[in-house]
Simulated scan of single mutants.
Amino acid sequence: MRNDVIELAREMKKRSEAVLLAESEFMKSNDTEVIKRYFREVNNLDLMIYPKNIIQLCDAVEKLAEYENMEPVAWGRNTGMSRTLESTTKSERVSQWREFNEAHPDIADDIFPLYRHLNK
């Protein structure tokens, strides 16, 4: 995901949290300064809620959803003291690795899924 989209999401979250905090104070107070702060925070958030920004965030969420629904194309594991990389596309082999890990938890290998890149 592009850094500008990540920064946009972080900034929108930060401003949204500021609005919620100001709102909770606003609901409990009749103080003019608290009321002004609330509306200042709301207006500050409004600047972020620009359709172009929302579309960028939605596109990024859709891309993440594509990754979430992917199935691994292979599996890998780091084995032994030298941490040799071993890989397989066979689910039976992965089952054997997992059984080994369960039988020997003190020397269990790191087993991890491998995915195809969406743009490839």
Results as ranks from 00 to 15, higher is better:
M1H: 08
N3H: 05
N3T: 10
D4Y: 03
V5N: 08
I6C: 04
E7W: 07
E7P: 04
E7T: 08
L8D: 07
R10I: 04
R10L: 14
E11Y: 04
K13F: 11
K13V: 07
K14M: 14
K14A: 14
K14L: 11
R15G: 03
S16Q: 12
E17H: 08
E17M: 13
L21E: 12
L21P: 05
F26W: 13
M27N: 13
K28R: 15
K28Q: 15
S29R: 09
S29A: 12
N30W: 15
D31A: 13
D31H: 11
T32N: 13
E33G: 08
I35R: 14
I35M: 12
I35S: 14
I35K: 15
F39H: 15
R40E: 11
E41L: 07
V42E: 05
V42L: 15
V42D: 04
N43Q: 08
N44L: 10
L45D: 02
D46N: 13
I49T: 10
I49F: 12
I49N: 14
Y50R: 14
Y50T: 10
P51G: 09
P51V: 07
I54Y: 13
I54E: 14
I54K: 11
I55D: 15
I55R: 14
Q56R: 13
C58G: 11
D59H: 09
D59K: 05
A60N: 07
E62V: 06
E62Q: 08
K63D: 06
L64P: 01
A65E: 09
A65G: 07
E66C: 04
E68C: 00
E68V: 06
E68N: 05
N69D: 07
N69L: 09
M70T: 01
M70R: 00
M70K: 01
M70I: 01
E71K: 00
E71A: 02
V73A: 02
A74S: 02
A74R: 04
W75H: 06
G76M: 01
R77Q: 03
R77Y: 03
T79P: 07
T79S: 11
T79L: 11
T79H: 06
G80N: 02
G80A: 08
S82F: 09
S82V: 03
T84N: 06
T84W: 03
L85W: 01
E86R: 02
T88V: 02
T89D: 04
T89E: 09
S91T: 10
S91F: 03
S95Y: 05
Q96W: 07
Q96M: 11
R98Y: 01
R98N: 03
F100H: 08
F100P: 01
E102N: 06
E102D: 13
E102C: 05
A103T: 14
D106V: 11
D106F: 03
D106S: 11
D106T: 10
I107T: 15
A108V: 07
A108W: 00
D109F: 06
I111C: 03
F112L: 02
P113A: 00
R116T: 01
H117S: 02
H117K: 00
L118R: 00
K120M: 04
